[in-house]
Simulated scan of single mutants.
Amino acid sequence: MSFSALAQNVQVEGYFTQDSAKLGERVGFVLKARYPENTQVVFPDSTYDFSPLVLLEKKTFISSTSEGTTLDSTIYFVSNFSLEPSIYLSLPVYELSRYDSITYFSTEAELKLKLVLDSIPEQPVFQENNVYQPIEKTFNWLLAGLITAGVIVLLGGLVLLFAKRIKGFFKKNREKLRWLQFERKWRKLTALLAQNPALELADEVVGLWKGYLESITDLPFQEWTSSEISEALNDKEIFKALRAIDMIIYAGKEAKTEEATNYLLEVAKTKYQEKLNQIRHERATR
């Protein structure tokens, strides 16, 4: 079971490389962790939810160890598209133990929104023109008002009639696109894991799977252990599949993962189909 903790074995520091940024500007967020050299620590990857920021790139650096203490650091390059005056970001670092993991969060770092306006002259300058312009006095304002009101009512009716259907259509296509992106990345990572059962690959595969299921079910898969996930989904085979990959992460043992990853992909596909059915049901009942 994962849980958050204040600075104990691992000291975490996070800060932006600048205090303010324009809308959409690329900004660096530095995440550092100091911990005993015999401790195993993992930083968040691209599956982590950085909202309202958008992750552009992750840059890691070689660890350095001195007098029994290791220093790790990573820069996450992000962009802000929120119109809030200030946004705050705190990122976790995971300490891996034999059965569980401990989560340490950095303190919240503030990034202010920098608004840029063109200069405005102090005194407005008007062009002189003393030629009188003829005014059309026969314009029927009443008729124009009635026509405008009729158009507004018609457009409002169309919006009320079709807005929810259009929203459902885009929601369905968004889920299909998200599934295709997940499946493509999943097959690539699991193929690499089958060839080289390394700890970092195994951790990324599990994180990708948990992140996708969390996005379509709104359940805290990232925080749950393998046994909690299996119990929540009422499927003991999920525990066996995750445990096969956990043996690489926590025990450092090589394992044949094809059967486990294929089963996890089928579970994700089933949840994806359930999500599509839910969207269809919502559209049909509106």
Rank of each mutant, 00 (worst) to 15 (best):
R34A: 03
A33M: 08
G156R: 07
N9Y: 10
S90M: 06
V125S: 09
Y263K: 14
I248L: 12
P197Y: 04
V27C: 13
G150H: 14
S86V: 07
T261W: 05
E37Q: 12
I120A: 07
N277E: 10
R184C: 00
R243I: 10
F182H: 03
F50E: 12
S51Q: 10
L242S: 02
F162R: 15
E37V: 08
E67P: 11
K22P: 04
S119A: 09
F29S: 09
Y132L: 05
L233K: 14
F221A: 02
N262P: 12
G28Y: 03
V206L: 06
E110M: 14
E110C: 07
R34H: 08
V151W: 15
P220I: 08
R280A: 11
E84R: 06
V93E: 00
Q222L: 09
I245T: 02
A109V: 03
T69H: 11
K58Q: 09
Y15N: 09
D235R: 15
M247C: 08
E110D: 15
Q18R: 12
Y88E: 13
E95M: 00
L208T: 01
D118F: 00
Y212K: 11
K22D: 05
E204D: 06
F126H: 11
I102A: 06
S226E: 01
K112H: 04
E84D: 13
E175V: 04
Q195M: 03
E95T: 03
L158G: 06
R243V: 07
Q8C: 15
I166Y: 14
S4R: 11
E223P: 08
L213R: 00
E57S: 06
Y272C: 01
L201N: 04
P197N: 03
L192Q: 11
E274H: 01
T148Y: 04
L160M: 14
W186Q: 00
L71E: 13
V93P: 13
S227L: 01
P36A: 05
S230L: 08
S20T: 12
T70V: 02
Y15F: 12
I152L: 13
E175C: 13
I87G: 01
R178H: 02
N277A: 15
A33I: 03
K271C: 02
S64Q: 15
L83N: 06
P85V: 06
Y250N: 08
R187G: 01
V151D: 03
Q181H: 01
A244V: 05
V42C: 02
E282A: 04
E254I: 05
L265T: 02
L177R: 00
D235A: 07
A232M: 07
S227F: 05
L177A: 10
G211S: 10
K172G: 09
E175I: 09
